[in-house]
């Protein structure tokens, strides 16, 4: 899955591709707020139109995104059922022990699943039109206030860049560790919840050791290539803001405000 995340950028020259990474992140967080606030049919319809419009403008087919989200259907079913049976016992249609099938549970399950689906939709559009470098560059700008705590923007940028490139590597490492444990008799596909949970534990310590070992070697390689923290302060040129950046932020803000009113 690590490679899957990193391989989702689709090269293009749409208006989304031209926007700054920081703008797209700001818009994403505004839309994320809108998703959190949405709980009506009209609100979800507005979100759907926003997602469809964004996908068309970005040159990414909703169908492709839909397929990748559909792979998580088991997860959606699980959270829907958990809300359906555990959310509320008021005016339940059916009750047994701790399980209560109620209208409020049905509504809550539907709302939660819809929110997660839309969040994933917008997330896919973001990473489909933003290279890892643009993403970390955008995050670097948004995290620049951390400079008051002694971490420069240059260092933040480096840390985020390295973090992103570690993801597929550590993901592969975790997978190899799992397979090595399976070869030694560990079971990861137990039928019971606690069996599966227990089986995840022998992966955790080796994954940490592998991650820290790699970090140790990379730190040496970076020092060998002249990296110094005190020189990591970035020389930032003039930040140019285009009309499409402003428009995107305004539109995202409008969607967010609409959810408050709907």
């Amino acid at each position: 899955m690590g490679n899957d995340i990193m391989g989702q950028y689709i090269a293009g020259d749409s208006v989304f591709h031209k926007m700054r990474g920081s703008t797209k992140l700001i818009c994403f967080f505004l839309i994320l707020t809108a998703v959190i606030l949405t709980d009506s049919a009209a609100g979800f319809f507005l979100l759907f139109m926003t997602a469809a419009g964004s996908a068309i403008l970005a040159g990414i087919g909703l169908r492709n995104i839909g397929k990748s989200i559909a792979r998580l259907k088991l997860f959606f079913i699980t959270i829907f059922l958990m809300n359906l049976f555990f959310f509320s016992s008021e005016q339940a249609w059916w009750s047994f022990w701790i399980f209560h099938l109620s209208p409020a549970g049905l509504e809550q399950g539907t709302v939660v699943v819809m929110r997660v689906v839309f969040l994933l939709l917008f997330s896919r559009i973001l990473i489909g039109t933003t290279t890892p470098a643009e993403l970390t560059g955008g995050l670097e700008i948004l995290l620049s206030p951390l400079g008051v705590f002694g971490i420069s923007t240059g260092e933040t940028a480096m840390i985020l860049s390295v973090a992103v490139q570690f993801i597929p590597i550590l993901s592969k490492e975790a997978d190899q560790i799992r397979k090595a444990q399976i070869a030694r008799g560990a079971e990861f596909e137990g039928r019971h919840f606690w069996e599966r949970a227990k089986s995840a534990l022998p992966v955790v310590i080796p994954v940490f050791l592998a991650a820290f070992r790699r970090a140790d070697e990379l730190a040496l390689a970076m020092e060998a290539r002249g990296y110094r923290k005190e020189k990591a302060q970035r020389k930032r040129g003039r930040i140019s803001i285009h009309l499409c950046d402003v428009q995107a932020i305004v539109l995202s803000g409008a969607v967010c405000m609409s959810q408050i009113l709907l």
């Binding site: 899955m1 690590g2 995340i5 997860f75 699980t78 959270i79 958990m82 260092e155 480096m158 840390i159 985020l160 860049s161 390295v162 973090a163 992103v164 570690f166 993801i167 550590l170 993901s171 975790a174 799992r178 990861f188 919840f193 599966r196 949970a197 995840a200 992966v203 955790v204 994954v207 940490f208 991650a211 820290f212 790699r214 970090a215 140790d216 990379l218 730190a219 970076m222 923290k229």
Partner: peptide
């Protein structure tokens, strides 16, 4: 700095190792 980067990456990788377990 690099250990922090590895920890951030683990924030994404470790939950994936648990994703087969509902909730």
């Amino acid at each position: 700095a690099v250990l922090t980067a590895a920890s951030i990456a683990l924030c994404i990788v470790l939950p994936m190792a648990f994703h087969a377990i509902p909730n």
